[in-house]
Design a protein around this nucleic acid. Structure first.
Lengths: 189, 189
DNA sequence: ACTGTTAATTAACCACCGGTCAGTATAAGG
DNA sequence: CCTTATACTGACCGGTGGTTAATTAACAGT
């Protein structure tokens, strides 16, 4: 009968995000429920709604970090010391690696649609794509067609979408990923 | 107060499948509920469970037809009168067209994973892919790498997965589809 | 110390979902 | 006329996301 807990054990946004992030690594978006988070935190699920408007808002905070990670990887790769050809190859492989090593997150970032996902996430996805496009163009010797870059992106997306769930981590699809990257490189030339 | 309706309006599997199919065209798998089907049929949702073991079994009956449609399209295209190059192009375009004109169904067929979908559907998807692979190989002048055919499939899959939900029908992505098909053809040569 | 205010939380509620099951009215068969 | 298999209902289970009135801990002012 204590509708408010003492300050020492008050719920913070960070605690909630942390727990959600933790569960989000092992289950997908739909399997992580506000109730499962609350249960693990030892509070009622309603309490979370005091700190976050809804499930989408909570998960956007988490997914922001993953968009940042992906964008950061692109930047790092482009600014690396390898030759452009190698870098391009790394961008493709890295994208697939990211997708298959963060499957639940990738699904949320690039596969779920407007009815289940926050609009901010959609925007972030567009931005991330643009970064990808710029990276690919900057690593190419010739001027590429926008449509070809787009096609390359969708080809990578298809790879992740296909192996997702069928494979536990990128490692299991590593060889296929190399071949797929070569396939895309071939198409771009 | 009539727990049993007169024989004239008895519920049949076909009636259920028909209603489910109808709703499945406008909503996706998760949005079509056993209850929404029952409501439209004027029966209790429990009644459906007399005719079908569960939701997956009901929806597999529907999805079977769509797999057949896709397979039939591949056969027809391969056995057509055009030259191989044109046919191959048609196969790619047709796959994308199918995916974007039957988005909910495509999602069920090729995107949902084992926890939500019947095992039979997975098998059908594999079979459909094999048919695709054989078609592509048979339409190619040179011997293709298995991995390249796989890559082509994933590239197409990525196209559909990407435009799904963002576009209402194939028409809106027609030009992009042509360009994407060309992209894939380029990679195969 | 007393008071008022605000922030945080609970618990009960809503409307859904897939799925189960005991019970029952009906149609058909003996 | 009685029995039995069938076809169905409706209540129920445990789950989901989301809302809200009531309650109280913590804090600021006097």
């Amino acid at each position: 009968m204590s509708p408010r807990k003492p300050a020492s054990q008050e719920l913070t946004q960070e605690m909630i995000v942390e727990e959600a992030r933790k569960q989000f690594i092992e289950k997908d978006f739909h399997q992580v429920s506000m109730r499962s988070i609350a249960k693990e935190l030892g509070c009622s699920h309603g309490a979370i709604y005091y700190h976050f408007k809804n499930k989408a808002e909570l998960f956007y905070v988490i997914i922001e970090g993953y968009f940042a990670e992906l964008n950061h990887f692109l930047d790092e790769t482009v600014n690396g010391t390898d030759d452009n050809q190698t870098k391009l190859y790394h961008v493709f492989l890295g994208f697939m690696e990211f997708g298959l090593n963060h499957q639940s997150q990738y699904e949320y970032m690039f596969m779920l649609r407007s009815n289940e996902v926050d609009g901010l996430s959609q925007e972030a996805a567009n931005l991330s794509y643009e970064k990808f496009a710029q990276s690919v163009q900057s690593l190419s010797d010739d001027q590429l067609l926008i449509s070809d870059i787009y096609s390359a992106f969708m080809a990578l997306h298809g790879f992740v979408a296909h192996y997702r769930g069928y494979v536990v981590s990128f490692d299991e699809a590593k060889e296929a990923a190399h071949l797929h990257a070569e396939f895309i490189v071939k198409a771009l030339k």
